[in-house]
Structures are given as structure tokens and as C-alpha cells.
């Protein structure tokens, strides 16, 4: 045991990862056992590899030429990278009569438009629920909290009925409207405004004669930017990956996830192109995450549900 402990102490690399004990970030608590820290690092590395290896494999495969795709046993990394799989995408889709650019446009348009609406609608509602004392607020807050439990998948069938009554099946609205009704945005925003926007400030603005719209526009929106960034991430991520099940039939209204599934169904010979579409699909959400992540980690703190 003592031998083990000495060995642990000789692993200076551990110290480079673990926070500096003297920094204000870490507090004087109790001595952390080296074995414990070693176990932490080991576990995190194992889980980290499990998480990212499939994604790295996907990127590698998307650059493999055809002979490397068919090699046995398959190799993880690519030895002679090529853009062929990406360049082959438009011709793979040529028998569908809809060009690839149309799907990309649909995906981007729907996702950006929905995310924008979602963030604005949630912020406005979150502000009212947090800072006014209207009678309906109580019921709405409880309703929103309960509705967190039910996502688009579990509500698919009853929503399908509503879509058909509204006559919006086979239109862009089936992508856009349901997500804007997602309770997560209002919930997070209401909680965030509770903590981040002091009542006294709003009162001062009111004394200066500002109306509710002006307060919302000029005071609240700048103060809740971190939470708006968080909603942008969640909105973008969810809408980008949406596959409309049985509500979109017109090929020209479909989005990238649908053609990803189609290409993927083509078997091993097409696996390079399938991975290429997947890589294209991965880039936007990862980009949004990198932009928003510090805001997300700051604002998610207010997400707790008290029972």
C-alpha cells in the first residue's frame, strides 16, 4: 500500500490537471487522497474516450477512400484522406430530384427561425411570470414545471391530431410551432430572471416613466443574455436534429436528418458518404456550443426545481 502511495505521489502529471489547492477557487477542506484523485482521472479518461471515440471514428471514416472503407479488418484512422465522400453527396441524391442545397437551406432556415422565435417567446413569458403578480401566473408556473416531463416524442400522437385540425401537416409550421411551445425555455428563463434581475431596478425604471415594453426591451433583455444564449443552444440543438415523423410528406420540405437516414440505409459502400453527412450535421451544433458554453454553465445554475 505504501509503495502504491509513493508511486502516486510521483505522478506529477496529476497535479497539472487537478485545481491548485491554494487558488481561491479551491477551498481548504480536507486532504484529498491521491488514490481518489487517480481514480477520478482514470474514470474521466475512460468515459471521455467512450464519448468521443465514435465521433472521431465518424470524422475519420468520412475521409476514407472507397478501398479503405472495404478493407478487412477495418481500420480506425484514415491513411489516405480524400474529399471524395463529400463530393459524392450531391450525385447520391440526384435520383431524389431535390438538390442537396435545398435540404441544407430547409435545415438552416427552420432551425434559425425557430430558435429565434423560441428565445424571444420564452424570454417575454419568463419575464412576465417572474416579475408580475397576475392571478394566472401561479397556474402557468405549475403547468410549465409539470410539462417539463413531456417532450416532443411522448406528445407526438396528440400533437399529430392538433396539426391535422389546424391543417398545417406538410408545412414548415410542424417544425416551428411545437418547439416554440416547449416549456423548458420559459422555465429556465423565469428562474434566471428571479435571480438576475432585481425588483428595485424595475421599480426605478417605472418611476422614470418607462412602460413595460420598454423595461423588457432595454433593461431585461440585456440583463438576461446568458440565459438567452442557453436557450439558443438548446433550441438550435433540438430543432436541428428533428425528424418529423409522419407529418411531412413533401420531399422538398424535408431536412438534413431525413436524408442522413436515407443515405445511411445504403449499406457499407455508402458508409463514407453517410459519415460525411453526419460530419456536416455535427458542425453547426458544435459551433453553437463553443460560442455559448460559458453562458450556459453560468445560467443553468438557476434550473433547480423545489418540491
Amino acid at each position: 500500500m505504501s509503495v502504491l502511495r509513493i508511486k502516486m505521489r510521483r505522478l506529477p502529471i496529476l497535479n497539472r490537471f487537478v485545481a491548485d489547492r491554494k487558488s481561491s477557487d479551491q477551498r481548504k477542506r480536507f486532504t484529498r487522497s491521491r488514490a481518489g484523485t487517480f481514480f477520478y482521472v482514470l474514470f474521466l479518461i475512460a468515459f471521455g474516450l467512450f464519448s468521443v471515440l465514435p465521433l472521431i471514428y465518424c470524422v475519420c471514416t468520412s475521409f476514407k477512400p472507397i478501398d479503405e472503407l472495404l478493407i478487412f479488418p477495418p481500420k480506425f484512422f484514415v491513411s489516405r484522406p480524400t474529399w471524395a465522400n463529400y463530393l459524392a453527396l450531391p450525385s447520391l441524391l440526384s435520383n431524389m430530384r431535390i438538390p442537396l442545397s435545398r435540404y441544407i437551406f430547409n435545415s438552416l432556415f427552420i432551425t434559425l427561425f425557430t430558435t429565434f422565435l423560441y428565445v424571444m417567446i420564452s424570454t417575454a413569458a419568463g419575464f412576465v411570470l417572474s416579475k408580475t403578480k397576475m392571478k394566472i401566473n401561479g397556474i402557468l408556473i405549475t403547468g410549465v414545471q409539470m410539462a417539463l416531463l413531456f417532450n416532443a416524442f411522448t406528445l407526438a400522437i396528440p400533437r399529430y391530431l392538433i396539426f391535422s385540425y389546424m391543417g398545417i401537416i406538410d408545412t414548415f409550421w410542424v417544425y416551428i410551432l411545437p418547439y416554440c411551445a416547449s416549456s423548458m425555455g420559459v422555465f429556465l428563463m423565469k428562474q434566471y430572471i428571479d435571480g438576475a434581475v432585481p425588483e428595485a431596478l424595475l421599480e426605478a425604471a417605472r418611476i422614470d416613466g418607462a412602460g413595460q415594453f420598454r423595461i423588457f426591451n432595454q433593461l431585461v433583455i440585456p440583463m438576461v443574455k446568458p440565459c438567452m444564449m442557453t436557450l439558443t443552444l438548446f433550441g438550435f440543438q433540438a430543432v436541428w436534429a428533428t425528424v418529423p415523423d409522419g407529418t411531412i410528406f413533401n420531399e422538398s420540405l424535408k431536412t438534413l436528418p431525413t436524408i442522413m437516414a436515407n443515405i445511411n440505409a445504403g449499406g457499407i459502400a455508402r458508409s463514407g458518404s453517410a459519415m460525411a453527412v453526419t460530419v456536416i450535421m455535427m458542425i453547426p451544433p458544435i459551433f453553437i456550443y463553443i460560442i455559448t458554453q460559458s453562458n450556459v454553465l453560468e445560467s443553468m445554475n438557476s434550473a433547480g426545481i423545489k418540491e
Binding site: S51, Q237, T278, I286
Partner: peptide, 15 residues
């Protein structure tokens, strides 16, 4: 980022 990446990329589970 590494841990969150799989949920971030949505439909990529078909890998």
C-alpha cells in the same frame, strides 16, 4: 465538451 458532445450531435448515434 467531450462528455456532452454525443448529445450535442443529435442523430449521430447511427455511428
Amino acid at each position: 465538451f467531450m462528455f456532452y458532445a454525443p448529445s450535442l450531435v443529435g442523430n449521430a448515434f447511427f455511428i
